[in-house]
Amino acid sequence: MFDRLLYRGPSLEVLHEEYAKKGRLDERAPLIAVHEIRIEAPVERVWKLLSDPAGWGLLDPAIRDIRLDSTVAVDAGFTWKNGMARIKSRFAVIQPRREITWTGVSAGAHAVHRHLLEETADGATQVRTEESMGGPLLVLFFNNAKLQATLEKWLAGLKRAAEA
């Protein structure tokens, strides 16, 4: 438990370059969650929603104040709020219709958040999201159940918007 409490993990730069860009989460991070959902919409529509950070508030009203440094591209930065947390992020993987991944930092916690899209044979989209978070004292105010609930809420919002 003490190790989880004080876990710092890799630097944000290493997390970005050696983990996120290579399709990896921080497997040693104290918080890891995964969620999948089937969306009855074409992968193009789902991709359009995920690759438009300015519209993320439509997926989850807790997300707001999104500011992109440039376009959605590998290594492009953006800042945003999720609830009370101000997050500074950077895109690590942009593979249209297949994957969008970013890293982020908020209050000393480092995260990798991946989204994998797969077109199904019948024209729907299977979306898998996975996230790892680590940082000193993080487990005092956030836990796996909360992270899991956040991912479930996020994908439910994506599903609602894509199927509308």
Rank of each mutant, 00 (worst) to 15 (best):
R114M: 12
V93G: 07
T71Y: 11
P10K: 14
W154I: 01
Q148C: 01
G55V: 06
W80Y: 11
H113Q: 14
E40Y: 08
E131D: 07
R45I: 14
L59Q: 07
Y7R: 14
A33N: 08
T101D: 03
G23E: 05
S106L: 00
A92K: 03
A124R: 11
P42W: 00
F91V: 02
D52Q: 07
P96H: 04
V34Q: 12
P96F: 08
L59T: 06
E99C: 03
L15C: 01
Y7Q: 07
T71E: 15
L155P: 10
D60S: 07
H113S: 07
A73T: 10
E131H: 03
A164V: 02
R98W: 06
L116F: 13
E18S: 11
R28L: 12
N82G: 08
L49A: 12
K146E: 13
A107H: 10
R128G: 12
L68F: 01
Q148S: 12
G83D: 08
E36G: 05
R8T: 15
T101M: 04
N143P: 13
V74G: 02
R45L: 11
H113E: 05
T103R: 08
W47G: 05
I32C: 09
F141N: 08
E27K: 09
S89P: 02
T103L: 08
Y7G: 07
I39V: 10
V127G: 06
V14T: 15
R64T: 14
L137H: 13
G55W: 03
V74C: 03
E152K: 13
T129V: 13
V112F: 09
P30N: 00
E163H: 01
L25N: 06
W154P: 00
L15N: 01
L49F: 08
G104D: 03
R97E: 09
A54D: 11
A76N: 04
E18H: 07
T120Y: 01
D65E: 15
Q95T: 12
F91W: 14
P53K: 04
R67T: 12
L151Y: 06
L50A: 03
Q126W: 15
W80C: 04
K88F: 11
T129M: 11
T120Q: 05
S11R: 08
M133L: 14
K146R: 11
A162I: 07
S89M: 01
A29L: 00
A145R: 15
N143G: 03
